[in-house]
Nucleic acid binder design. Structure first.
Length: 440
RNA sequence: UCCCCGAUAGCUCAAUGGUAGAGCAUCUGACUGUUAAUCAGAGGGUUCGUGGUUCGAAUCCACGUCGGGGAGCCA
């Protein structure tokens, strides 16, 4: 005999008038003398179960009284439409089976502080808002992969343990690797995914990436998930066109399928409904001018000189000028990675773009056309102070059948934070890894 | 690494240098429509740690620990 639940609360409308058995956890209980309200959660949704003393056997009522918050149980009853219920349905209880009783569940329905909740993250994920948010994360991931698959992309995973720093820019987590010395946790899969691009034409990798930066802001994690598509015979403009289609498709699918979760999170969906290609594009040069003309509009936003990178307040100011995500393109090569193709008309800038989400959520995508000329690429590797020997395999990709190609990386947690309207990125992943937190 | 802020009951927070408080949670009782139920009662404290100032420190000072927000860096 299977223990699996036969009826899910999400599908309860189809059982009106019928007797069903629901399996789940008590998320709240209200006792009113001879009447008990049990709020039952089964992972799919919640429903209020009503126990009237005179309608049930004495032992059933006694067991209902015993139930506490987060006790596991099976409840049998008749599904009844009721206007007083938020979901439109209630369960008139006939039977209660206790699976396990919980005592002293730490998270009450009242308010809690961040530290307490993060310390109990393994339990916090049961709470309504966290539940809705992690569902949206799952939808974003599914939408991203399925959209790429439908466009003919092949998933091509990159290694997490690598011998050298891919981009040579950020700090990496290191570990001992047998007799071969140090190994590092990947900060990007991009270089590897370029090899797949030469094999399959259109590929993407998807997995965790690691940055040992001592970043301590609501936009940073030391471990985060990134999806990185790479396309052969695609230039900078093709790349931006792909990105805007990709992001629009993800946002529209979340609106379509996770509307209830967005309501739980009280997310204003009007800005999301506007997220449709094409997205506006401004050049780095224009963005610098804009910052210098209007930096007073955002707190902490200062004037800047050409050649400097944008800080978080600058990104907020730039994004504020548009009603949907905006591409900032053609940054100075000096502040970008070594592999970015120079603009043929202006070699001091790169054929790259960052996509800034609206509403102050900042950069969610960074992408570029990659250098395909082996001589230029090798020169850049040297200019950036990297060891050419470490990059021989990467240079091989240009020695054998090189073509112009482009790609980008989207940070899943930042995208989820933006789409769900969540202020802090730490809630968009089940177990966030941060500078001062690795438990639980 | 730098700047700012915080730590008091299980949780969220009060307390002018002068007896340690409330709401919620827990326990007891009442209640047939609650949605963070309500009402009555009870229990619950190494005020983060160490040192200092003071007749007297939760409160002021120093150092430390842990955490939060931001900067830089980035997705």
């Amino acid at each position: 005999m299977s223990l699996l639940p036969t009826t899910s609360i999400a599908a309860i409308a189809g059982y009106a008038g019928q007797t069903v058995t629901l399996s789940g956890w008590i998320y709240n209980k209200t006792e009113k003398g001879k009447l008990i309200f049990l709020m039952l959660r089964d992972g799919s949704a919640t429903i209020q179960c009503v126990v009237f003393k005179k309608n049930v056997a004495e032992d059933v009522f006694a067991r209902a009284q015993q139930l506490t918050q987060e006790s596991a149980c099976r409840i049998t009853g008749v599904v009844r439409a009721d206007e007083r219920s938020a979901s439109g349905y209630e369960l008139d209880v006939q039977g209660v089976e206790i699976v396990s009783l919980t005592h002293d569940y730490p998270i009450s329905p009242k308010e809690h502080g961040v530290e307490f909740l993060m310390e109990h993250r393994h339990l916090w994920v049961r709470s309504a808002k966290q539940h809705a948010l992690l569902r949206i994360r799952a939808e974003v991931i599914a939408a991203a992969q399925e959209w790429l698959n439908a466009q003919g992309f092949i998933r091509y995973d990159s290694p997490i343990l690598t011998a050298t720093a891919a981009e040579g820019t950020t700090n990496l987590f290191g570990t001992d690797y047998f007799d071969l010395g140090r190994a590092y946790l990947a900060q990007t899969g991009q270089l590897y995914v370029e090899s797949g691009m030469m094999s399959f034409g259109k590929v993407y990798c998807f997995g965790p990436t690691f940055r040992a930066e001592k970043s301590k802001t609501r936009r940073h994690l030391t471990e985060f998930w990134m999806i990185e598509p790479e396309v052969a015979f695609a230039d900078h403009d093709d790349n931006m066109a792909l990105q805007e289609q990709f992001v629009s498709a993800i946002v529209q699918r979340v609106l379509e399928r996770r509307g209830e979760d967005l309501r739980t999170l009280e997310r204003d969906t009007a800005p999301l409904e506007r997220v449709l290609a094409p997205f506006p594009r401004i050049s780095y040069d224009e963005a610098v001018e804009l910052v210098n003309a209007r930096h007073g509009e955002v707190e902490g936003c200062t004037a800047m000189e050409w050649g400097e990178d944008f800080g978080a307040p600058h990104e907020t100011l730039i994004a504020q000028q548009f009603d949907r995500p905006v591409f900032v393109e053609r940054y100075p090569s000096a502040i970008k990675a070594f592999y970015m193709e120079p603009d043929p008309g202006r070699p001091e800038v790169a054929l790259c773009a960052d996509l800034l989400a609206s509403e102050g959520y900042g950069e969610i995508i960074g992408g570029s056309q990659r250098i395909h000329d082996p001589v230029l690429l090798e020169a850049r590797i040297r200019e950036y102070g990297l060891n050419v020997d470490d990059y021989q395999w990467y240079l091989d990709l240009r020695r054998y059948g090189t073509v112009p190609h482009s790609g980008f990386g989207m940070g899943i947690e930042r995208a989820v934070a933006w789409i769900s309207g969540t202020r802090h990125i730490r809630e968009t992943i089940p177990f966030p890894r941060q500078l001062y937190r690795i438990y639980p």
